Amino acid sequence: MNQAELILLIVKIWGGIGALVAVAFLTFGMDRLDEDARGAYVFRPLLVPGILLIWPLVLWRWYILADGKDEWSDRYRPRRTSHQWFALIMPIAIVVIIVAGLSVRQTWPADIAPVQLSEAPE
């Protein structure tokens, strides 16, 4: 088995598990977690691609919300403890990247003569 076949196998397994989670969550879980979603079946197929990709997060949130371990006040309060550091680091990083990109130059050897790949049209 080469790397491409292994990657394809992993993608198939991930998608298969995601499909099972999507079917289970959209048929049983959503009605129990969200009162507004009861009886609303038209939008559920739109959620399938997202659930296929992030099924571990869907399972984790389903478990947390079903057990009542989620604190509703934390859900609506933004977590801004690290925003201050990113606000300082990102402009510095952008300037460093731009300066590094402009300062690195590719130089060609002077002894390489240009080679014509095809004949000139007549």
Rank of each mutant, 00 (worst) to 15 (best):
W14I: 00
R44T: 00
V115P: 03
V115T: 11
R61G: 14
P45T: 05
L6D: 09
L33G: 14
P91H: 09
V11M: 07
M1C: 06
D36G: 13
V42P: 02
Y63T: 07
F43L: 06
A19N: 01
L117F: 11
G101E: 04
K12A: 14
G18E: 00
D74Y: 02
A22I: 03
L117A: 12
D67H: 05
N2L: 08
W108T: 03
D70W: 02
A87Q: 07
A110L: 12
F25H: 11
P114L: 08
P121C: 06
E35T: 02
I17M: 01
K12D: 00
V99G: 01
R80Q: 04
I7M: 13
A66Q: 10
V58T: 08
Q106W: 14
I89W: 11
D111V: 00
G29S: 14
R44F: 06
L102A: 13
S73G: 05
I64D: 10
L6I: 15
E35V: 03
W55I: 10
I54W: 09
R38N: 13
Q3Y: 09
L88N: 15
D111W: 00
Q106D: 13
E122G: 04
S118E: 15
P49G: 12
G18K: 04
A4G: 10
G50F: 05
V11C: 04
Q3L: 13
Q106Y: 14
A22F: 00
R38F: 06
L88S: 14
L8S: 11
V11P: 00
L47I: 15
T107V: 03
I13E: 10
V23C: 10
V21K: 06
L53C: 08
I7G: 00
Q116E: 14
Y63E: 06
